[in-house]
C-alpha cells in the first residue's frame, strides 16, 4: 500500500540519490550529481544551471539546451514533483528534528491564509514603482537592471497567466539568478544553491576520508547549507529559484494532479467539515477547494500527503483528470463557512 509508504519513500529516494552519487564518485563512474546527472554522454543538467551558464558564457550549449527542453517537458507532465521526491533539501531540513523543537502549535493559521487573488502584470509594475521607501533605503537604490528584472518577472508571469496570478519572492530570486549570471558572467546562484551544497558537502567528506583533503570548505559549505535551509526554514517556499521556475512552468501542467472524488468526499457524503487534505498539504494548497488555499495547484509537489490523509479515500492522483470528477467540479465556495 502506497498510503504509508509515500512519506517514507520521499525520504528513501533522496537518500538513495545521495548514495548513488557517492558511490559514483568513489568509483569514478561519471554519474554526476543532481546538477548534471547522467550516464555516459546522456546528461540531464539542472535547468537553472543550464540557463545560467548559457547566459554567463554567452554561448549556446547543446547539452544545456537539450536538458532544458527535457526539464520543461518533465515539469509540464509532473509539475514540481522533484521538490517532494528527489530534492535533497527536505532531507537536510530533517536536521531540525534533531534539535527537538516545540511541536504542534496548532493550525489556526491555515484558515486565515485565504487565497489571495490577483490581477495582471500592470499591477505588478505599479507595485514595483510604488515600492515603499523602506525597501529602497537599505542602501541599495533599485538599479535599472533590478527594475528590469522585476519587470521581466512580471511580464514573464503575464505570459503564462492563469485565473489567479501571484508573484512571490521566489520569482524575484529567479529573475535575480538569471540576471546576475548574465551581468556578472558566471552562474552566481550556483555558488549558494543548497542542492549543489548538499552534494558538495558529501563529496568533500568523501575526499576528506579518501584523500585526506582538509579544507576550510569542510566547515563553510555545510554551515552555509544549514543556514540557508535549516535556520532559514522557508527556503523552499520563499527563496528557491528552482521552485519558482517549476511553479511557472507547471501552470500549464494538467496531468498527475490531485483530484477529489466529490461523491466520496465526506464533506458531501456525510455533510461534515473535514479539511484534512488542506491541513496535510505542505504547500498550503487546498485540494478540495483550490480557490481557498493560500497557494495554487501549480505548486503541488505530488507528495501524496493529501491522498494519504483523506478519511474517505476521495483523493487520487490520476494521470489525466477524470471528466466527471474534475477538481474544478467541486462546488466553489464564496466564504469560509459555506463548505459545511
Amino acid at each position: 500500500m502506497l498510503k504509508n509508504n509515500a512519506a517514507r519513500l520521499r525520504l528513501i529516494i533522496p537518500l538513495l540519490v545521495l548514495v548513488i552519487v557517492s558511490v559514483g564518485f568513489v568509483l569514478n563512474s561519471g554519474t554526476g550529481t543532481l546538477s548534471a546527472l547522467g550516464w555516459g554522454d546522456i546528461v540531464l543538467l539542472c535547468p537553472l544551471g543550464a540557463l545560467g551558464t548559457m547566459l554567463a558564457a554567452k554561448l549556446l550549449i547543446p547539452q544545456a539546451l537539450i536538458s532544458l527542453g527535457i526539464a520543461v517537458v518533465l515539469i509540464v507532465v509532473l509539475g514540481p514533483a522533484f521538490c517532494a521526491w528527489i530534492c535533497p533539501v527536505p532531507l537536510v531540513q530533517k536536521i531540525r528534528g534533531i534539535f527537538g523543537e516545540p511541536k504542534n502549535k496548532g493550525r489556526e493559521g491555515q484558515q486565515i491564509a485565504i487565497a489571495e487573488s490577483s490581477s495582471g502584470g500592470e499591477v505588478v509594475e505599479a507595485e514595483v514603482i510604488a515600492a515603499p521607501a523602506t525597501v529602497v533605503k537599505a542602501g541599495e537604490e533599485l538599479s535599472d537592471k533590478e527594475k528590469a528584472s522585476l519587470k521581466g518577472c512580471a511580464s514573464g508571469c503575464d505570459a503564462c497567466a492563469s485565473k489567479r496570478e501571484k508573484l512571490d519572492s521566489r520569482h524575484f530570486i529567479l529573475g535575480g539568478t538569471l540576471l546576475s549570471a548574465a551581468i556578472f558572467g558566471f552562474p552566481v546562484f550556483c555558488l549558494v544553491c543548497p542542492i549543489g551544497l548538499t552534494f558538495a558537502t558529501t563529496l568533500l567528506v568523501i575526499r576528506l576520508f579518501s584523500g585526506g583533503d582538509v579544507t576550510i570548505a569542510l566547515l563553510v559549505v555545510p554551515i552555509l547549507l544549514i543556514v540557508e535551509v535549516v535556520v532559514f526554514r522557508k527556503w523552499c517556499s520563499r527563496l528557491c529559484p528552482l521552485s519558482a521556475f517549476m511553479s511557472l512552468i507547471s501552470k500549464v501542467n494538467r496531468t498527475f494532479k490531485p483530484q477529489v472524488d466529490t461523491a466520496k468526499c465526506i464533506e458531501n457524503s456525510q455533510g461534515t467539515k473535514c479539511g484534512l487534505c488542506a491541513q496535510a498539504c505542505e504547500e498550503l494548497i487546498d485540494p478540495r477547494h483550490p480557490e481557498r488555499g493560500a497557494r495554487e495547484m501549480n505548486e503541488c509537489t505530488r507528495c501524496r500527503a493529501c491522498v494519504d490523509v483523506c478519511p474517505g479515500n476521495a483523493l487520487s492522483i490520476p494521470i489525466l483528470p477524470k471528466k466527471d470528477k474534475r477538481l474544478e467540479g467541486a462546488p466553489p465556495l464564496q466564504n469560509n463557512d459555506a463548505g459545511v
Binding site: E116, S117, S118, S119, V123, V124, E127, V128, A131, P132, V135, A138, E140, L142, E146, S149, A154, E165, K166, L167, D168, S169, R170, H171, F172, I173, G175, G176, T177, L179, S180, I183, F184, G185, F186, V188, F189, L191, V192, R238, L239
Partner: peptide, 27 residues
Amino acid sequence: GPGPVSRRSFVLGVGGIAVLGGLGGLR
C-alpha cells in the same frame, strides 16, 4: 484587493537579489 506581490515577498525578493548582486561582485 491583495496585490500580486505582498510586501514581504517584495522585501525578501529584493533582498535576495541584492545578495546575488553582492556575490556577483566577487567576479
